[in-house]
């Protein structure tokens, strides 16, 4: 019941062993050349050219390929040729497992079908987001997986509200937050009222009654719920090449006046309407 990558799914299903998966990954690493390595293998650039481009990357925020063109080391046509060759020779993990003899082609097909079915609940739905967003895929995935995990983990019904840009996040019982860094810098915030905090605690602790639990435990369960959501977001966006890191979750007790969006960030609020009047809000603070 989580976002997985195909190799992990195969190990969990007992279709391949850890050892054969690692063997296939090693084959993938030898076969799937990085852009610079591929350009070198095709005779377009030298190791010194890559070093020059890497040095230039320290002062220019550009991808290696674009930088090689910018430095006139590669022509745009050569860059496209290198990218096309990379795509044409890319070895997927399933193919690598067949090549190392860990799976037959037929077994690979049936495992892929089972994997698609297992991961179908995590395929993103369209969510309306503002046009200025520089990280729409991350934000869409974060919102979508929040909705899906509220349903699956908490087992509660809700109605998602319309996304709004805000300068202040409203006061609530507590806010649990986590920071995404790497290819994007975004702070994820989930604010919950007292009743929802207990609902989350029941689901995370798998207990029917949490009335005697300490505030520390109740807050910890909300942080853990946010940790589960954010970990699954990182896994989901990594499937399309976005690399993110997360830090451990934190609890924030906002002042009565609300939590202001920090300078250099823009704030998006997604109200989550829960049937019995409890309040939940998802906030995303996006660094500009």
């Amino acid at each position: 019941m989580a976002v997985k990558f195909f190799g992990q799914f195969l190990v969990e299903q007992g279709a391949v062993t850890n050892e054969s998966l690692l063997y296939a990954i090693e084959l993938q690493e030898r076969t799937n050349l990085k852009l610079g390595e591929m350009a070198m293998a095709m005779g377009y650039i030298t190791a010194q050219d890559i070093e020059r481009a890497h040095a230039a990357q320290l002062s220019k925020d550009m991808k290696l390929g674009d930088l090689l063109v910018d430095l006139s080391i590669l022509s745009p046509a050569q860059l496209q040729e290198v990218i096309d060759r990379q795509k044409a020779t890319h070895l997927f993990i399933g193919e690598a497992l067949v090549k190392v003899g860990a799976l037959t082609p037929d077994k690979l097909d049936s495992c892929l079908a089972a994997f698609k079915a297992d991961q179908a609940p995590y395929v993103s739905n369209h969510i309306d987001l503002p046009a200025w967003l520089i990280t729409p895929q991350l934000c869409e995935t974060a919102v979508d997986l929040t909705y899906k995990l509220i349903t699956r983990v908490l087992g509660i019904q809700f109605r998602p509200g319309k996304c709004q840009e805000v300068n202040l996040l409203s006061t609530n019982r507590m806010i649990a937050g986590m920071d995404f860094s790497g290819d994007a810098t975004v702070r994820y915030l989930l604010s919950v009222s007292e009743g929802l905090q207990k609902t989350i605690a029941k689901a995370i602790l798998k207990e029917d009654d949490v009335e005697t639990e300490s505030d520390e435990i109740l807050e910890d369960t909300v942080m853990e719920f946010v940790n589960i959501i954010c970990g699954n977001v990182v896994a989901k966006v990594s499937q399309s090449g976005t690399n993110l890191e997360i830090t451990p979750p934190v609890t924030i007790h906002p002042p009565q006046s609300g939590l202001p969006v920090p300078d250099g960030y823009r704030g998006l609020l997604f109200p989550i309407h829960v049937s019995d009047g409890e309040v939940m809000e998802l906030g995303l603070l996006i660094k500009q």
């Binding site: 976002v3 990558f5 190799g7 850890n18 690692l22 589960i228 970990g231 699954n232």
Partner: peptide, 20 residues
């Protein structure tokens, strides 16, 4: 871990000697 689905993290853990 909640990061188990990240292919790189999963692979790194196995390479370092995690059993699962």
């Amino acid at each position: 871990t909640s990061l188990g689905g990240v292919g790189d993290k999963f692979t790194e853990a196995l390479k370092l000697g995690a059993k699962s």
